[in-house]
Simulated assay, not measured.
Amino acid sequence: MSDPLIIDRLTKRYGDLTALRDMTFTVHPGEIFGFVGSNGAGKSTTMRIVLGVLAADSGTVSLGNRPIDLALRRRIGYMPEERGLYPKMKVGEQLQYLAELHGLSRADAASTVRDWLTRLGIADRIDDTVDDLSLGNQQRAQLAAALVHDPAVLVLDEPFSGLDPVAVDVMSDVLKEKAAQGVPVIFSSHQLDLVQRLCDRVGIIAKGEMRALGTVDELRAHGGVEIEIVGPSTVDNWADGLPGVTSVRVAGPDTTVVGVAPDADDQQILRAALDHGPVRRFTPRTPDLTELFREVVSA
């Protein structure tokens, strides 16, 4: 079982711009943590500080009770958002070299490289140069580079970018497998449906600050309950001012989405809708992560 990855009060400034402000969260062993935010929110900055690529102005990063130093960073599998492999070098030779840098013997490195390329579906490209691969296969090779040394922590910046659905499934299975082995896994992504499906917990960052943190169910519950009503014309504004209705959103010419308070009488809302025409659908639902993300980021 690995130790938790602990990010504690990281602050990073560039002149007058504060890129991170008191960024704090923990990724537990065996947990897949989704780190989401708009472009420029501070996700990559946080990850680069974890890897020592950037230095924080204040705050600490530790693995368990040990501040991360060069020796511990060797135990991290890192996948940068930008392609980090040498484009003119053969895939197999490059991964072999990286594995040996991490201390594997030549024979063990060759074996693990072959295993990961097979697992990720690009074993037949082992003798191709990186720039001969499609963007999706470059992403698979980049993931293999993060895994060849059997890391104790995985830090992945936009790992699903450019992948087709089959490759997304392969990469998802790999992340779940590593988490099942007790490895803390953190990844950033703009594909919020994927984050919602994969992650045990999610942190939503905006303007360098953590704005929401919890399990997907906790975050969605915090967003309240909505009811989607299809039928009455939205031109009538029939839902405005109803008791227990906290928000009204038009989602189409005959579709109204109302936010409701916990003690709202949904039958009263249904009756009000029926007074303005037939109701074809009346569906209570919890907002998904994408809707919650928009709300948190725009707040």
Rank of each mutant, 00 (worst) to 15 (best):
M210Y: 07
E81K: 06
V202S: 04
D200L: 06
K88T: 11
K90H: 08
S2R: 05
I7K: 03
A144K: 00
D127Y: 13
N237P: 14
Q139A: 09
R114C: 13
R281G: 15
R211Y: 09
L63I: 13
S247Q: 13
F35G: 03
S298P: 11
K12V: 02
A221H: 15
A109E: 05
Q94W: 01
D8P: 13
S247R: 12
Q268M: 14
S58G: 11
L292C: 10
E291G: 08
I76W: 04
S161E: 13
M47Y: 04
L10T: 00
R140W: 12
L192I: 02
T283L: 14
L143V: 01
P67R: 15
D127R: 11
E81C: 09
L70G: 15
D169E: 15
V183P: 03
E295M: 15
V170M: 12
R114M: 14
A145R: 02
L72S: 07
G30V: 02
L101K: 11
P159G: 04
P29L: 05
D288G: 06
G42P: 07
G103T: 00
G259M: 03
Q94S: 01
F293N: 02
T26S: 10
G42H: 06
A109N: 07
K12H: 05
V130A: 00
V296L: 08
L51E: 06
I269N: 00
D240W: 12
S62M: 05
R9C: 10
N237Y: 14
L198I: 05
R119D: 08
M23G: 05
A99M: 05
D169Y: 13
G208W: 00
M47V: 03
Q139L: 09
A99W: 03
A180D: 09
F33P: 04
D150R: 10
K12F: 03
I7T: 04
Y14L: 09
V216L: 09
A41L: 05
P253Q: 13
S62Y: 10
D217A: 12
S44T: 03
D57I: 05
A221R: 13
T286N: 08
F282T: 01
L198P: 10
T286V: 11
D8L: 10
L63Y: 10
M89T: 13
G252S: 10
L95P: 03
R281I: 13
A152V: 11
V250G: 08
R271L: 15
A144F: 01
M171N: 11
K12L: 03
